[in-house]
Amino acid sequence: MEFLKELGFNDLVLHRIINSNDDSVIYNFIMDCDNVRDVINYFREIGIEVIDELLVRRLEVFSIDISKLKKQFDKYNVGVLVSLINEDISAINFL
């Protein structure tokens, strides 16, 4: 998962990801690293501040196809949804 380091995530986050996820989920996450990069960049763009926590606790979200994910966000007031996610990552379930 070295590509995450290039995106600014530290070893601690990587360790937490490994300890919090099934091997299969991690494997497919790595295999899908291009989409993961796009999702992380999109999340940063719209103001999500809890990307670390989402990576550790909801890794599968980063494997949602980026164009699908953007469409899902667009169904809501993005600012409000982002603010809810920043308060409680469970709000990602609105998608």
């Binding site: 998962m1 070295e2 490994i18 991690i26 494997y27 790595i30 690293c33």
Partner: peptide, 23 residues
């Protein structure tokens, strides 16, 4: 004292293949 023992892979090299055909 860092745990240097494990990595799931990096951008260039695949270090771990997780099979799941049976699963």
């Amino acid at each position: 004292e860092h745990d240097l023992g494990f990595s799931y892979g990096d951008d260039n090299l695949l270090s771990f293949i997780k099979g799941a055909a049976d699963d």
